[in-house]
Design a binder for these strands. Structure first.
Lengths: 222, 222
DNA sequence: AGGTAAACCCCAGTTTTTTTAAGGTAAAAC
DNA sequence: GTTTTACCTTAAAAAAACTGGGGTTTACCT
């Protein structure tokens, strides 16, 4: 009887209890599943560091958003993922996130390259079980909505560089064109040029910014 | 009792019989599964065209390689996929292929954006069943090895243009540098520059071409 | 070992693309 | 009704990519 150790980090106490309840009831070969939990960045970090000197977690579930969006917290789930990768590279990391937007998914897939990514609305006992099993045998596991987003990106032949992506992202969250230069290392006319270029790429010439971000969203870039 | 109609196209008669045998035995809600088969591009095309006037196929399984690699055939599974998309856009298309190399996977994901992609070594009764169910309810379905390839691509931030990809691809199939100009619309010195640039991108400066294509393979580009 | 072809490297000139600044117009916001 | 913002044009500067011409090194063949 092997023991499969899981750490789940989510800021909502209740949902985490749900995960723990479901995960520990998974029947998986001759494995005994034990779930630890934490509900802050610091708490998760501590659990991982403690584990270094004893057992190590086989799977770490991480909520991307460890704090309410309005609170300006320095560290989120993504940072904890990066830290975990460094401390315990052999642990499988599965991200959970409520948004299925491509910008964040892409950012996470690049920065930590997790062994799994689940959009929260896809999470249920069945998918959690599937995730645990897939990730331990042949990662990665991506939940249905995540796969949909990934599919959009893969079926796309438009390639954008970092500046283009930043422009799209900032526009999508409501940043005004005139304020873009504060976030992107380019002159205002360059940004305008790129915006024009982007609109032609996405077939929204002579339309407004909303049409552009809508098109970019449809194609899976935001 | 609904009827789920499946068309499977593969040039190996025997493997196709296997698919038919397994697919028709899948228990899926109150569905009755019927599998038609074809073993050539022409045969598949004909079946699809016939279906236009009666029922339509719910799922079409397509072997990417419909002919032995040495035979110079004009049409392969990819072409049949493009045709099928045009004739019956509502049919789900699942590609099967023996190679898991990214170059081909990417090409197919872009040209037809199939609802499923299965690497042949991943195919077994269980995965076939999973593919049928996933594709009918919430596509896409990608088999384990395909997901591995997709993961590699998603997790890296190197963006290459068409010429770079062509150079990598041709180098990987053994094309000599001096012959590259026949396949790519660039001068020989441009190709050399790009090769140098590629080697620096992949961290294989001052190494030979083998190191470059190995690195590119590892990162999921070939 | 000698000879040859391919791979590789470097440079200088050219073309192409990107960036930048400056100035103007039309629409929207206040 | 004035100010702000978005958008466009132009021209010049800078950066990046391409090209043709050198050359040297490496690999392979007999």
């Amino acid at each position: 009887m092997k023991t499969l150790r899981i750490l789940a980090v989510d800021d909502h106490e209740m949902t985490m209890l749900g995960y723990k309840f479901i995960l520990e009831r998974i029947v998986f070969d001759d494995h005994n599943i034990i779930v630890d939990t934490a509900n802050t960045y610091e708490g998760g970090k501590q659990k991982i560091e403690e584990s270094l000197h004893s057992f190590k977690y086989d799977i770490i579930f991480l909520d991307v958003q460890l704090f309410p969006p309005n609170e300006e917290q320095p560290n989120n789930g993504e940072d904890l993922g990066i830290l975990a990768r460094k401390l315990v590279p052999e642990s499988k990391i599965i991200f959970m996130s409520s948004f299925s937007d491509n910008y964040r998914i892409n950012s996470i897939l690049k920065s930590v390259d997790p062994d799994g990514y689940m959009v929260k609305t896809d999470i249920d006992p069945k998918s959690l079980e599937q995730a645990v099993k897939t990730v331990t045998t042949q990662p990665p596991y991506y939940s249905s909505k995540a796969l949909g987003a990934i599919r959009k990106k893969m079926s796309n032949d438009i390639t954008l560089d970092e500046n283009d992506k930043k422009i799209l992202y900032h526009l999508s969250i409501g940043t005004k064109t005139k304020d873009l230069e504060k976030h992107i290392e380019l002159s205002s006319s360059s940004i305008e040029n790129r915006k024009r270029h982007l609109k032609s790429l996405f077939g929204t010439e002579k339309e407004n910014d909303l049409a552009l971000i809508l098109a970019a969203k449809n194609r899976g870039f935001i």
